[in-house]
Structures are given as structure tokens and as C-alpha cells.
Simulated scan of single mutants.
Amino acid sequence: MKKTLILGASTNPARYSNLAAQRLVANGHPIINVGLKAGEVAGVAIEKPELIHTDLDTITLYLGPQNQPEYYDYILKSKPKRIIFNPGTENPELEELAEANGIECTEACTLVLLSTGQY
């Protein structure tokens, strides 16, 4: 199973990050929810982007590119194996930084990857 950090986690059930959290857990993947507002998604508390998690397989992004720069250090220090840029989160600058640090970057939809067995 692939430990996944959801960056941009939301308690709003209409948000794709919320749906992704539910589906990741349903598929047996352990998750870490990181967001700005307190709460819980799929039985996991949302934490602030303070603690660096270094045992990650994947960071799946649900933040627009305009909101990502303040998280660059957080993401790079976490050293995930890959970053999934979900639709609307594509960011060539972050992709270049990540790849220079040996992190695989994928422009894809976490929900589609899960539903097609490609996660």
C-alpha cells in the first residue's frame, strides 16, 4: 500500500481532495491529510503543514499553482517517491524542482488512477 499525503485536504464532501481521501482509505492506502482548516476526512485528522513526513510514497496535490510556492520546501523535504498533479494543479516550476530532487511527477487524476487500478 502506498502511504499518501493529501496536500489541500478538505472536510467539504464536494471537494475532490475529500473524495480522494475516502477512496484511498477504501483501497487500503494509509493517508495523511494536510490542510489549513481543522477537521477530519476518512477518519484521519487534517494537520497543518508543519510536521515533515519522510516515509511517503505519494503526495497528491489539491492546491492551485498560485498557492503552491509556500509549500515547495515542505514538499521537497518530505521526499516522496512521486507527486501527482491533479487537474488544475499543474505547475512546471514545482515539477522541475521535484524532478531535480529525484521525485517522479505525474499529471493525472488520483481518482482515475484508483478507479483504473493504476494507483
Rank of each mutant, 00 (worst) to 15 (best):
residue 89 T to G: 08
residue 10 S to E: 07
residue 44 V to D: 02
residue 2 K to S: 05
residue 36 L to W: 12
residue 19 L to Y: 10
residue 51 L to C: 14
residue 81 K to M: 01
residue 82 R to P: 08
residue 32 I to C: 14
residue 114 L to M: 05
residue 21 A to K: 10
residue 52 I to Q: 05
residue 6 I to S: 03
residue 63 L to R: 14
residue 94 L to S: 10
residue 95 E to D: 13
residue 47 E to W: 07
residue 51 L to V: 10
residue 55 D to I: 05
residue 24 L to P: 06
residue 95 E to V: 15
residue 98 A to I: 06
residue 22 Q to P: 12
residue 31 I to N: 04
residue 62 Y to L: 01
residue 117 G to C: 01
residue 63 L to P: 13
residue 100 A to S: 00
residue 45 A to T: 13
residue 55 D to S: 11
residue 4 T to G: 01
residue 92 P to A: 14
residue 49 P to R: 06
residue 90 E to I: 03
residue 34 V to Q: 12
residue 118 Q to H: 08
residue 9 A to R: 04
residue 45 A to P: 14
residue 3 K to F: 01
residue 101 N to G: 10
residue 82 R to Y: 08
residue 109 C to V: 12
residue 51 L to H: 15
residue 103 I to A: 02
residue 53 H to G: 04
residue 2 K to R: 02
residue 105 C to T: 08
residue 67 N to G: 13
residue 34 V to I: 11
residue 119 Y to I: 14
residue 71 Y to D: 04
residue 77 K to C: 00
residue 9 A to I: 15
residue 84 I to Q: 02
residue 90 E to K: 11
residue 33 N to V: 07
residue 85 F to S: 07
residue 74 Y to G: 08
residue 9 A to Y: 03
residue 41 V to L: 02
residue 95 E to F: 11
residue 5 L to G: 01
residue 91 N to Q: 09
residue 75 I to P: 00
residue 97 L to H: 08
residue 84 I to Y: 01
residue 107 E to A: 14
residue 57 D to G: 10
residue 73 D to H: 11
residue 39 G to Y: 06
residue 116 T to D: 03
residue 15 R to I: 03
residue 19 L to E: 05
residue 37 K to W: 09
residue 48 K to W: 04
residue 40 E to N: 12
residue 2 K to F: 11
residue 112 V to F: 01
residue 25 V to F: 00
residue 29 H to L: 00
residue 34 V to C: 10
residue 75 I to C: 09
residue 91 N to I: 03
residue 89 T to Q: 14
residue 32 I to K: 09
residue 52 I to V: 08
residue 100 A to V: 03
residue 107 E to W: 14
residue 41 V to P: 05
residue 56 L to A: 00
residue 115 S to I: 00
residue 92 P to I: 09
residue 111 L to E: 06
residue 63 L to Q: 10
residue 10 S to V: 07
residue 75 I to S: 00
residue 105 C to F: 09
residue 90 E to C: 02
residue 43 G to T: 08
residue 31 I to V: 05
residue 70 E to H: 13
residue 76 L to C: 09
residue 18 N to V: 08
residue 38 A to C: 12
residue 59 I to E: 10
residue 91 N to H: 12
residue 103 I to S: 05
residue 117 G to T: 02
residue 23 R to S: 14
residue 11 T to Y: 09
residue 66 Q to E: 09
residue 61 L to P: 05
residue 66 Q to T: 11
residue 10 S to L: 02
residue 6 I to H: 08
residue 10 S to F: 12
residue 109 C to H: 11
residue 42 A to I: 07
residue 4 T to E: 00
